[in-house]
Every structure is written in structure tokens, then in C-alpha cells.
């Protein structure tokens, strides 16, 4: 086992002391991603006495923390995504998982029996098994001006920012459930909501479409896309192109973007097999194309993406990882 030495200082009973501690850099399993899939895998593995390191790029909890209230997680009446993430994280640590958040994966060597992961360009960790539980992230339009006006007219969260748009004219981009449900929710603030969608039909469930269509404040611009955002200090205009290539400059106070999620798999491109949607391809044991590397949660190829399915994936990946290590 490789060890890296570290020194800590402390004061006990008025005496200054130096404590030399060993930081383990070799683990049975390294989990990349601290959302519900990764944390569940960590809990199962740590309870099975495996040494576990969870590396997380952003906030612990993944997309779960983006949910204000969770009311469909069995056994819990209602909880904020933040609190559920905190509870899962504490549970994982209680059983012995080491969690490092806000880390950046610099290098991955997953072939062979020993896997090596470098973070922040300087720290190396090794393991027998790696579980990829990197989840997804909100898709952005990637058009000029989008970054400049984020928080200054462009938003990705209706419940967070809706009240800044009282009596304003806004656009909602997207045609799925989130887009139409949030368009309806935003009508309690905005004077008008224009839904701009790139296709001639919606991907949302029928009830969401009906509710949006029945709302007098909502209008629809179909088969159109936003090309550019512009303004001075704040967003003032959008450029919209329709199916006939006509381009309109529309004055607008705000734009809410809900165009789905993409799996966070860029860093494993050319390392494990991905499908055409950049999702990680797995077998029925959640093993990827590389032996000893499993995938769980929203980053893997799957149709249903819920907190419950992510925790189920985390369980399966953990149990398969244990079997792989012990065989």
C-alpha cells in the first residue's frame, strides 16, 4: 500500500504538538462522482469493509441538489435535494468513505489491474476498481452572449430567479417537461412567456403540453432556434431563426433555458466505450468496456434517470465491484 505522509499541528491541554499522519493513496475502490449513485456505491462498499475514495468535481449530491423538494423518494415524505445529499454524504463518511470534493480529474489510467487517477494535476490515487458515477449537467445553448448574460437576464432555474421577472416579457427555450412546466410556473410572475422550441412537436407529457397551451400568457414559436443574446448591462435582445431561415431580432427581458441534460463523460472519451449520445455503455453488471471499471447513474446508457434509479445503480455497481475484487 502506498502512503503519503502529512503533518498536522494541534494544541492539547495547552501543549503545542505535531502529529504525523499517513494519508492512504491506495484504495480498493475509487468512485468518481458524489451524486446519489456514487454515494450509494460508497455506502455499500464501505459497509463491506472496502476502502473507498469518492472524488467529486463540484458539489456533493450532483443534480440532486438542484431539486428544491423531493417527494418521490420512498420512505421520506418531503426533503430538499440539498438535505438528502448531505444525509447521504454523512452516511457514506460514517461508514468510512473518504470524500474529496471540488476536485478536477487530470489523468486516468484504467487499463490493467491497478487503476491510477490523478487529480488537480498533482495527487495520484490507485485502486483495484473504479466506478464512474459522474452524472449529467444542464445542457446550454452555446450561442454568443449566453455566458455574458447568465444572471443578468439568462437563467436556468425558474424557482430561483422567477421573481426577478415580475411583469416582464420572457422566453422559455425547450420542449420537454421541464420547459413546459416551468413556462407555466413563470406565468405567475411574467406578463408574457414565449416558448421557443427547435422541433415541430414537444417531447413533454401530454398533460404538461395541455396545461401550457391552456395558459393565456403563453405563446409558442416552433421550429425555431436562438442564435445570439445581446444587450448592454443586461439581456435586451435575442436573435431567433425560424425553419425558413428568417431571422428576427426580438426585444426580451429574460430567457430561461431548459433543454435537457448531457452526461458528464468527456474525460472518459477514448477510455471506455460511449454510445452516440456520449453515455457510458455497460453490461447487465454495470461493467464498462474496461475490466474493473463500472458505471452507475445518469452518466451511463439508460432510459430512466431518477434519484431512485441512481441509488439502485450504485448498489449494483458496488456489489459487482466487491465480487470483482474478491474473485
Amino acid at each position: 500500500m502506498d502512503n503519503e505522509n502529512a503533518i498536522s499541528f494541534y494544541i492539547k491541554d495547552g501543549i503545542f504538538a505535531i502529529n504525523k499522519i499517513s494519508m492512504n493513496t491506495d484504495f480498493d475502490v475509487i468512485i468518481i462522482g458524489g451524486g446519489p449513485a456514487g454515494l450509494t456505491a460508497g455506502i455499500y462498499l464501505a459497509r463491506a469493509k472496502m476502502s473507498v475514495l469518492i472524488l467529486n468535481e463540484g458539489s456533493i449530491g450532483g443534480q440532486m441538489v438542484l431539486t428544491h423538494q423531493i417527494e418521490n423518494y420512498p420512505g421520506i415524505d418531503s426533503i430538499s435535494g440539498y438535505m438528502l445529499a448531505r444525509t447521504m454524504s454523512k452516511q457514506a463518511e460514517k461508514f468510512g468513505c473518504i470524500i474529496k470534493s471540488n476536485t478536477k480529474i487530470s489523468k486516468l489510467e484504467l487499463e490493467g489491474e491497478q487503476k491510477t487517477i490523478t487529480i488537480n494535476d498533482k495527487e495520484n490515487f490507485t485502486a483495484k476498481v473504479v466506478i464512474l458515477a459522474t452524472g449529467g449537467k444542464s445542457r446550454s445553448l452555446n450561442v454568443p452572449g449566453e455566458n455574458n448574460f447568465s444572471g443578468k437576464g439568462i437563467s436556468y432555474c425558474a424557482t430561483c430567479d422567477g421573481d426577478f421577472f415580475q411583469d416582464r416579457d420572457i422566453i422559455v427555450v425547450g420542449g420537454g417537461n421541464s420547459a413546459l412546466e416551468e413556462a407555466v410556473s413563470l406565468t405567475q410572475y411574467a406578463s408574457s412567456v414565449t416558448v421557443v422550441h427547435q422541433f415541430d412537436h414537444f417531447q413533454a407529457y401530454e398533460h404538461a403540453i395541455e396545461e401550457a397551451k391552456a395558459n393565456e400568457k403563453i405563446s409558442f414559436v416552433m421550429e425555431s432556434e436562438i442564435l445570439e443574446f445581446s444587450g448592454e448591462q443586461n439581456l435586451q435582445k435575442v436573435k431567433i431563426r425560424d425553419k425558413d431561415n428568417n431571422i428576427e431580432d426580438k426585444n426580451i427581458d429574460g430567457v430561461f433555458i431548459f433543454i435537457g441534460y448531457i452526461p458528464q463523460t468527456e474525460f472518459v472519451e477514448n477510455i471506455v466505450e460511449l454510445n452516440s449520445w456520449n453515455e457510458i455503455v455497460v453490461d447487465d453488471k454495470l461493467q464498462t468496456s474496461v475490466a474493473g471499471v463500472f458505471a452507475a447513474g445518469d452518466a451511463r446508457a439508460t432510459r430512466v434517470r431518477q434519484i431512485t434509479t441512481a441509488t439502485a445503480d450504485g448498489t449494483v455497481a458496488a456489489l459487482q465491484a466487491i465480487e470483482y475484487i474478491l474473485k
Binding site: S59, T67, H68, S80, G81, Y82, S101, N102, C157, C160
Partner: peptide, 16 residues
């Protein structure tokens, strides 16, 4: 902020 999706990641980063 509030305990919302856009705020929580900033608090987490600050805690770290």
C-alpha cells in the same frame, strides 16, 4: 442567496 440550486454549489465551494 437561498437554499436553491444555483446557490448551494457556491456555498459548498466556499465551505471547501
Amino acid at each position: 442567496g437561498r437554499m436553491g440550486p444555483m446557490c448551494v454549489p457556491v456555498y459548498d465551494a466556499m465551505e471547501d
